[in-house]
Design a protein around this nucleic acid. Structure first.
Lengths: 346, 346
DNA sequence: ATTAGCACTCAACGATTAAGAGTGCTAACA
DNA sequence: TGTTAGCACTCTTAATCGTTGAGTGCTAAT
């Protein structure tokens, strides 16, 4: 449908615009090494490309910029899978170099490094804690009125919460409570705990524990906290350096969206396998109308854990970001699989 | 040194400018109810006020705006201690209304509410964890290679870290280790733990525990994390709505400073008692040249725990923010004293 | 001591102009 | 027939220039 020459011209336009953020004119194109024909010819071809909807003008006599349809075509057909630079590879490796074993810290550091490498904003969706299984519950009394309940999951996630003790409870009883809980609940997925407690454990507790109702309430309150996934951002402010965000109102819109988190959560969680590119209004969200979102997922073994995403202007470096994300998600998955797969079966 | 009339005019100028962000002219002043004399008189007085350095012009024929010296005088001498509105009182109370007992969550929620109430940026410096005393150390093995170390302090702060177990360590030995640690280290301030371990506990461990050196290293790594205080921000983006930050570069400077945290840490930690107002360049920091920082501290009993601060444009509502912070720090201190003083002695 | 009056200044705004980058179209060319 | 040189035209950008209005400082009258 497009001639080779049109393809060439189109590609050069996109590459140039990604780099310069300025509309590309026929004259400046004709000077490029890749291009051997005159500006007049280019103008003709550009007129065709515009008619086909791949490029557009910002005003009647301006150079051309890629349209959203253009970016889509560029991403789908024109992107040669680029090899990641040595430095980039090194940088990614560095995340896993020093001994971090906590999933949450790895995820957080990933977000930070990704944003630094790209100068865009990174968003990492952490794993769903609801699927984690309970490893251990512990209660540490601080004094006569207060105690800390601590729960540890099989992936090493720790959640804690302070609560008030009923009056005159003795240490032995507290220990008994904890023992019962651990005995009955160990290995149960977090999101089923609440149910299981009320269906099976409550009866047991009523028999053995005084203040049964009060304690039960405190424990379940502690447990229900860590449901769902958590979002981590990196380089929230990087967008400020992008010329498309010189307008304060756009910045405010974007920042509002970031602060509310919910919007991104919806955008990111539905993720098919492989790398996904959503361009501009494809995201269906006004606040990021002139942004693109590139997502990939990471996993332990075959089980998908979460999503990594890079948010940049539609004029973003698709090639680089895609290969980076591709490499990154593979590497992260490998490390995590190595780290956690044994554990879950250990 | 200033006549009553100059004082009146000055006060009205500041109040007006704080509200409108526009230079105040003699004509618009003369129309105010408080002011009964003509614009010409006002012009004369304003000329004097300018000569004294309290107000300045943005250009030769503009109205006047307060200078930094002017704001200083306004804050020091012209501010009548305003009573907090009913709604505000209610709002502050709401922070402590639902049962939150964790210090960190209280602090975080405080930052959020303060920024919402003022539409400025709030910064809360959490308590120095180094002074917390160790309550309990626990180790939860996840599988054969990995375990989680958890430390709980007397204020209920929980810190945790994953580490690799040495091969073939048995559960009994792990338990012995934990027992020794708790026996010897319970009640020791966090920032002295490291020392104490190497001076007193290391010898003991060497006698009883195999893999002594490896485990010791892992434990001390876990312990050294929670040194120092932590900063919490609220309403980072509120400044975007202030007209003085319509310039993207200023926004970038400010945000860089916020992201680095260090700058604010230095600004806030040195705090004398009472409420402190630092205006514009008094803060000695270019990124917040046209901002003022109002700080107050909160405490448990007599012991100062941390600092609350509000960052706004120099043109901020000093009166309101000061009374809010005053009330807030008193209330927060009362709640915390009530909550923790018993515990520390319990 | 106060104020009315007036000349003066300056930012903000709109209109005008000139330069420059780019286009579309036409006609000549290979 | 595809390519290109040439040219008229468009539109942005930046600079220039009045014009308006808000505000000032000074002077002279009250």
């Amino acid at each position: 449908m497009l001639t080779d020459r049109q393809l060439l011209i189109f590609q050069v336009i996109v590459d140039d615009f990604i780099q310069s953020a300025q509309p590309v004119g026929s004259r400046s194109l004709s000077k490029k090494d890749e291009i051997s024909f005159s500006s007049a010819t280019i103008r003709n071809e550009m007129a065709d490309l515009e008619e086909l909807g791949f490029i557009e003008k910002t005003h009647t006599s301006s150079g051309r910029i890629p349209s959203e349809k253009g970016y889509r075509y560029y991403v789908d057909h024109l992107l040669s899978p680029q090899r990641l630079g040595k430095e980039d590879v090194y940088r990614v490796k560095s995340i896993f170099a020093d001994r971090i074993y906590e999933l949450e810290k790895i995820v957080q550091k990933s977000a930070k490094i990704l944003s630094e490498m790209t100068n865009y904003t990174s968003i990492v969706l952490g794993p769903d804690l609801g699927e984690n299984k309970l490893k251990k519950i512990q209660i540490v009394p601080l004094n006569e009125q207060t105690a800390i309940a601590i729960i540890v999951t099989d992936t090493g996630h720790v959640e804690n919460r302070m609560f008030q003790l009923p009056e005159n409870i003795d240490a032995g009883e507290l220990e008994k409570l904890v023992n019962i809980l651990n005995e009955r609940l160990s290995g149960v997925p977090m999101d089923q705990l609440h149910n299981k407690i009320y269906k099976e454990v409550a009866v047991l507790l009523r028999q053995h524990i005084s203040h049964y109702d009060y304690m039960l309430h405190s424990i379940t309150e502690t447990i229900k906290a860590p449901a769902g996934e958590k979002l981590f951002f990196g380089g929230k402010m990087n967008m400020l350096s992008q010329p498309e965000f010189h307008d304060i109102d756009k910045v405010r819109n974007l920042m509002n969206m970031i602060e509310q988190e919910k919007g991104f959560y919806d955008l990111i969680r539905h993720h098919h396998s492989g790398i996904q590119v959503k361009i501009g209004r494809e995201n269906n969200n006004e606040a990021i109308d002139n942004c693109s979102l590139i997502t990939a997922s990471y996993s332990v073994g075959k089980e998908r854990l979460g999503t990594i995403a890079i948010l940049g202007p539609t004029r973003m470096e698709y090639s680089r970001v895609i290969s980076l994300l591709h490499y990154f998600s593979k590497d992260l998955s490998a490390v995590l699989t190595n780290l956690y797969q044994n554990e879950n079966r250990g």
